[in-house]
Write a protein that binds this DNA or RNA. Sequence first.
DNA 1: TTAAAGTTTGACACCGGTGTCTACAAGCAT
DNA 2: ATGCTTGTAGACACCGGTGTCAAACTTTAA
Lengths: 348, 348
Amino acid sequence: MTITNSKRGSSKPTINDVAALAGVSKKTVSRVINGSDSLSGATLERVQKVIVELGYVPNPQARALAFGRNFAVALLHDNPNAQTVLNFERGVLDAIKDSDLALMVRPVDRHSPSMLEDIAKFLQQQRPLGVLILPPISERDDLANLCRTMGVRYVRVGSTALDDPAHCVASDDGVVVAQACRLLISTGHRRIGLVRGPHGFRSAAERELGFDAAMDEAGLDVPDDYRTQGDYRFESGRAAGRALLALDSPPTAIFASNDEMAAGVVHAALERGLVVPRDLSVVGFDDSPTAHHLWPSLTTVRWPIKDMGVLAAEKLIGDFLDTRRFSQDVHELPSALIERASIAVPKT
Amino acid sequence: MTITNSKRGSSKPTINDVAALAGVSKKTVSRVINGSDSLSGATLERVQKVIVELGYVPNPQARALAFGRNFAVALLHDNPNAQTVLNFERGVLDAIKDSDLALMVRPVDRHSPSMLEDIAKFLQQQRPLGVLILPPISERDDLANLCRTMGVRYVRVGSTALDDPAHCVASDDGVVVAQACRLLISTGHRRIGLVRGPHGFRSAAERELGFDAAMDEAGLDVPDDYRTQGDYRFESGRAAGRALLALDSPPTAIFASNDEMAAGVVHAALERGLVVPRDLSVVGFDDSPTAHHLWPSLTTVRWPIKDMGVLAAEKLIGDFLDTRRFSQDVHELPSALIERASIAVPKT
DNA sequence: TTAAAGTTTGACACCGGTGTCTACAAGCAT
DNA sequence: ATGCTTGTAGACACCGGTGTCAAACTTTAA
């Protein structure tokens, strides 16, 4: 026993204080903290009692230094949608709230040429246990490779499985979009337009696939000019809406690949003096606040984003958590179709 | 000189490697890193050269342990508005991007009885250099006191100066709201209704004060039933709108204390078959995505939230930063009135 | 009964920095 | 030249944990 009591009586107790009071070595206390094996029931109990008595909490900074890793998980995102990021964050915090893990959020800039380097530097410096990656940057394989080569755990969140089940959490965009489109079809629509998401985005491709599936199923033919290109932003949706509505035989319903663009489509319709949904039905995707606030409120698709946060955290650092809500092998979570007021029976 | 080279050649260089290569002691390298005084130009230069050569970056975990503080600033928020949080975050990151500081984001639950304890535990464990507090929890003096007694620096963000200039960053809500209301008045409105923010919120009070100022100035009398109570959420705005429009002599314009409630007011108007802005002018506050996406797009007030992030960070940890954009004594930043399409000349 | 194997625990170095105190050199007044 | 102050840099302990390795004790097998 070479342990001395900490000098400053008022300060937070350290591992040394616990060790001294329990009459064991630091290392033994460390073993108790980390739930290591090979501990006799007697010592374990004694040490735990002292820990509680002193209200001892291990110092994360010291642990990080000795362990070579920060007891934290990092969230990498490129602000697809503020509400999404925050809700996901809530999910992650929910999952880790009983552990002594921390969450660090890292916004990155997808358009910066130094993005990968910046992230590499961040991972080098902060050494989180692992990273959670939100779309759209979750789709980048080079980022996943970076994590792999740097030995940092990662979980990618996406519209579809982006990686093997251990490294991804997915929604089923294609499935719900098909469901949404079937709703349009069963309401009577035959001429249905599409506003795509940006090129190169997996989510955009998945949603279009869902759209196609529903159209095929119903034997509906989609003319080329019914498929318009957007970039997930409001203005692109408005432009797409204007183009679609200016066609000789315009669609009676439009599926926009996200809510912002759907809002743009609604604006385009209103500009022409059309009434939504009487003259045009619109469906969006995301269930953003906008979808709720728009008039008419928008029928849309809601990602189970908070649950995805929980699941992603559990996948990433399940071994550090003592309670789990999801089983190991789940990786896809179902989205929900939120039916609101933007769909009606077509006039003709 | 008691320094030995690090054994593992491939690993990141440590302070020991730098010291050995430069032929100085660890402590001297430490002095260089921290820009301490009392260093001869010769050694400083030599050490700096080696640092660059080796690509040495100090290990934040080790620094945190020795320094007794994490080189990070924490952002405490209660999700007033997702976009606001994220934009503020951007500002903070902008300010610290050239330093080796990190940002940790901490959502808290204002309604949880253990909020203060949770935050205290967080501060104890993570030991950030300081905390940035976003409204509405920034308004809580007990939180500020907690920081003060725990010796953690803090800066509070609010609608008005919540603390002495060194500890707060403020917008000028009252001033812009008055300006917005003057715009309504000069457009011809005489019957102007108000949807208040929730009781006990400084921002709500400030905005009402601005409203009052403009009304007084114009000698307009505001009947009691023109002042309705909201809680910053959509539904409360809709309810308030319904109540106002059901009055015998309804207002021709309504100022809602935030955009969500303004959206609710717009819904209430549309429900009655009114056309906005022809039959009712509406002004909101926040410049949220909703304000932009609504039809008609909403005239509203934009907080300089990103700049407030920069300013708040500079106030909090200016001594760790080598570049500053704002002068020490600025603490109020001007908001902007964003004129869009929701105001028109009243019919009568 | 004794050797071999397994279990539990401690001493000690170490992670990579910073604080304190001291040694030494240079600059200044006496 | 002597003594004193000031500036510069090093030795060493320390922050609060974890890894390694060996000692002490227990159990099992011969």
